[in-house]
């Protein structure tokens, strides 16, 4: 009997885990899909279709610590922009990035989740809650 109960609990846990994953995945997928739209209307001009940026002007979004690393810092860049030359792997990028604070928390979360999971990148999602918290810091 004890064995059956343990097995039962284990089974339930596995099923719950699968459900949780299944629920999580579509959410991230939906966010990525929405994020792609934001990217194409807002970011693509400078960062280019392939996310590779423009040599010495606009930084690439492919496998850089700015994109894959600290999510708070990444959100801050979108909210405040960047008006200093930035160095990535020995290359300096000179163009100014304006603030995109006019985007909603969800749009910023979506586009960053898209960028962190495109162009060969793979990283966790950015949530609207994080964007909201970071936005509060800037005000």
């Amino acid at each position: 009997m004890k064995k059956i109960i343990i097995t039962g609990i284990l089974c339930l846990l596995v099923v719950a885990y699968i459900f949780a994953q299944a629920k999580k995945q579509p959410l991230a997928q939906a966010s990525i899909k929405r994020g792609q739209k934001v990217f194409e209307s807002t970011c693509i001009v400078c960062h280019q279709k392939n996310g590779g940026g423009v040599p010495r002007l606009n930084p690439p979004l492919i496998k850089t610590k700015y994109v894959l690393g600290d999510k708070s810092q990444l959100v801050q860049i979108v909210l405040k922009g960047l008006n200093q030359p930035i160095e990535i792997e020995g290359e300096t990028y000179n163009n100014v990035m304006p603030s995109f604070a006019q985007l909603t928390d969800e749009q910023i979360a979506d586009v960053l989740t898209y960028v962190r999971n495109s162009f060969g990148n793979k990283a966790s999602a950015v949530t609207p809650a994080l964007v909201k918290a970071e936005r509060a810091k800037t005000q």
Binding site: Q48, K49, N50, G51, G52, G53, V54, P55, P60
Partner: peptide
């Protein structure tokens, strides 16, 4: 050339 990075030489 879809993205600037596609260009080999400039």
């Amino acid at each position: 050339i879809e993205s600037t990075g596609d260009a080999k030489y400039r």
